[in-house]
Design a protein around this nucleic acid. Sequence first.
DNA 1: TATTGTTATACTCTATAACTATA
DNA 2: TATAGTTATAGAGTATAACAATA
Lengths: 155, 155
Amino acid sequence: MSAAAAVDPATDPQLDAFVTAFDDFVRAAKRARGRVEPDAVLTTAQFDLLSPLLEAEVPLGLRELARAAGVSAPTATRMVDGLEARGLLTRVRSEEDRRAVCLALTEDGVTAVQQRRAQVAARRRALFDQLAPAERRAAAKVLARLAAAYEGVEQ
Amino acid sequence: MSAAAAVDPATDPQLDAFVTAFDDFVRAAKRARGRVEPDAVLTTAQFDLLSPLLEAEVPLGLRELARAAGVSAPTATRMVDGLEARGLLTRVRSEEDRRAVCLALTEDGVTAVQQRRAQVAARRRALFDQLAPAERRAAAKVLARLAAAYEGVEQ
DNA sequence: TATTGTTATACTCTATAACTATA
DNA sequence: TATAGTTATAGAGTATAACAATA
């Protein structure tokens, strides 16, 4: 048994409160996601894959996109197949390096990514609107701190 | 275009800070999940499905489990097929209502769920350990508040 | 030899529609 | 007729291993 598994959260009320709140938050977020996503233009995975292309000054390679989205190259290839067939991105062989492909959003692709971003932003905003001013400041601070804390975990 | 999509987050610095922090947090959490889960006994979906059975006093029906996990009945059936084949749960026809099945964890199933819970708890704890005492209190409070706020969104 | 991308293969998660058995 | 569950079918996401083309 690992050291972490041997720890009884009940022995530390602060840890227990943190873990419970975290679990509640994750569950609530999951439920909310389920309510919003059925009619989405892009799935989460597709959005994560395409999103970097909106900021990209130049077309990106498949591996770059795969790494940014946190998926394997074959998975990215397959996803790109579907997205290309739907006319959301273009895949052309690079002239400089004939091994590489250049991936870029089409006009429809840009629209799709922007729509999905707007959906996500709307969801965030709806949550924001539920909070009192002091809570809003506290939430932004805590979430930023937690994001940073993740980087210190498991190296 | 929806009202929400028309809002420019940049016009409200507090909203912008909140949305940015939220996005950073979600991305960091996703990366961390990817680092931990490859060697997990259960996938997230399997864990979500089995988890209620650990607390259940009596065996649960398939629909109950499906609803709790947020998946359709056929999805639950298929998942139960695999979990039953792996010996993690038992599926027996109910005596009182011959339409229903009674689902319960086997000893191995209990171990698997507990292991996964320990993994999740360890991840939460690692994050908790990164925080200063004041940050821990603030985080627990904010996460609980956000979980509650979700319930007020979209009714 | 190393890198980029694809194909082959296999498995999980997901849903809707249609079905069976029971109430 | 309504409910519990399953089967049929289809599609997306996921990975590893093996491959081709190019550097």
